[in-house]
């Protein structure tokens, strides 16, 4: 077998096959693209329609990082508020989490011992 493969539990994973497939797909995509119309007009036709208002500058329209997943964070607002409470940034809390987790493992371990 020329292609090496990584055997997993359910089958195998061979990145080289994927790379070959990607090359084939790229060639097909290029052929389709090359078959496109040559008389496509640029200029007025290519401009975005903004209800007749002039398009703002590209700099002003760049979606900033904190707005990118606005909908997602808004939908999970409850989760994120509790997460922010957890990541309080206070050193006492950091130590508290550590001591708490250690104590919890202790309790669970010795309770299991007794039962």
């Amino acid at each position: 077998m020329i292609l090496m493969m990584l055997k997993t539990i359910g089958g195998f994973w061979d990145p080289l096959i994927l790379v070959l497939a990607a090359i084939v797909v790229a060639i097909i995509a290029y052929i389709i693209r090359a078959a496109g119309r040559r008389n496509h007009k640029t200029g007025e036709q290519a401009k975005p329609f903004f209800s007749g208002v002039a398009e703002p500058s590209k700099e002003a329209m760049h979606v900033r990082a904190s707005n990118l997943y606005w909908g997602f964070t808004e939908a999970l607002k409850g989760y994120y508020t509790s997460m922010k409470k957890m990541h309080s940034g206070m050193l006492n809390d950091y130590i508290g989490w550590f001591v708490g987790i250690a104590a919890l493992i202790f309790v669970v371990l010795f309770v299991m011992e007794v039962l």
Binding site: K84, H87, S88, G89, M90, L91, N92
Partner: peptide, 9 residues
């Protein structure tokens, strides 16, 4: 330590 926490969230 309540005020020394610019790094949080």
């Amino acid at each position: 330590s309540e005020k020394v926490r610019r790094l949080r969230e």
